[in-house]
Amino acid sequence: MVWPGILSSAGSTPLDSTGFDLGPGESRSFQASPGWSGRFWGRTGCTFDANGQGSCTTGDCGSNQMSCNGAGATPPATLAEFTIGSGSNPQDFYDVSLVDGYNLPIAVDASGGTGVCGTTGCVTDLNRMCPNELRAGDGQACKSACEAFGNPEYCCSGSFGSPDTCHPSVYSQMFKSACPRSYSYAYDDATSTFTCTGADYTITFCPTSTSQKSSTDSSVTPSTGTTNTSPMIPKATQPGDDPNGSSWLPSFTIGGSSTQIFNNTLTWMLISFIVFCNLQL
């Protein structure tokens, strides 16, 4: 089971839910209005009673409910972030971020759009290669160096608050090596932000090499099974590889990572969630 959470940024029309549950292979779809921005993440190890009260081991939003009700994920959590186009700026911007740490694999596929429309995400189980000093709890999640140590050079804060002064650390480079298309630190824009126009997006939690959709698939119908397409995301380094690194940002801007992202697109966006929980979480 994964319990996705949704946080819409200020000024965006909220989606139909702020939190729900998904079993292995299940899916759920939402429509986002032009100009919408926000983030999605998966909560794990959740327990809710008959009244819907409870909490989660990772990614908990602190609402004490299944719905997050405007609250974001408690780090560490893997984030999928979007800014949907509108008006004169038709491009959508999207990314998968490890800036707030990592709790489970996520893949994002775009279909039916124009432009580069690449597949992005982090399909590696980083919990298995997380350094001891970054481990959260019993190893169910991996902290960012900023959260673990609080140093300005890891958080890109204070005198390190610019691209010229904040550089990859040994920890963020380890994440980047494992998941080269994901944000590993605040100014990791060049290889981590993706664009597309007029697309539908599928967010897959716990993807496998046989469950991930191809970025060229034109279907917008959520899948509840697996496909035979190969993953479009580069394979990760293996546990035991030496870490390399980068720094972290404590307050990650909704829908825009560390980059300035503009509102764009005249069409509605369909966002689908698929869970393939085949990992030991």
Rank of each mutant, 00 (worst) to 15 (best):
Y187K: 03
L98R: 01
L126P: 00
A145H: 02
E147Y: 13
D60M: 05
T58A: 01
C117D: 08
G118W: 02
V108W: 02
L79V: 07
A73S: 15
A110C: 04
Q65D: 02
P75R: 04
C179T: 08
S157E: 15
C117S: 02
Y102G: 06
A145I: 10
C117W: 08
S162A: 14
A190I: 14
S144F: 09
S111F: 07
L126Q: 05
P76Y: 06
F160Y: 15
T74G: 05
V170M: 10
P75E: 12
M174S: 08
P76L: 07
S169I: 06
L104D: 04
T191R: 09
T124M: 03
Q91D: 15
D60P: 08
P90E: 10
Q65N: 11
S67I: 00
N132A: 15
C130K: 01
G113H: 02
P180G: 02
N103P: 05
F149Y: 15
Y102D: 06
A178Q: 11
V108N: 05
G101F: 04
S144Y: 10
T58I: 07
C179D: 10
G101S: 12
E133W: 09
Q65T: 13
C56W: 03
A190S: 15
A178K: 07
G72Y: 03
Y187T: 04
A145W: 02
G161H: 01
C155F: 11
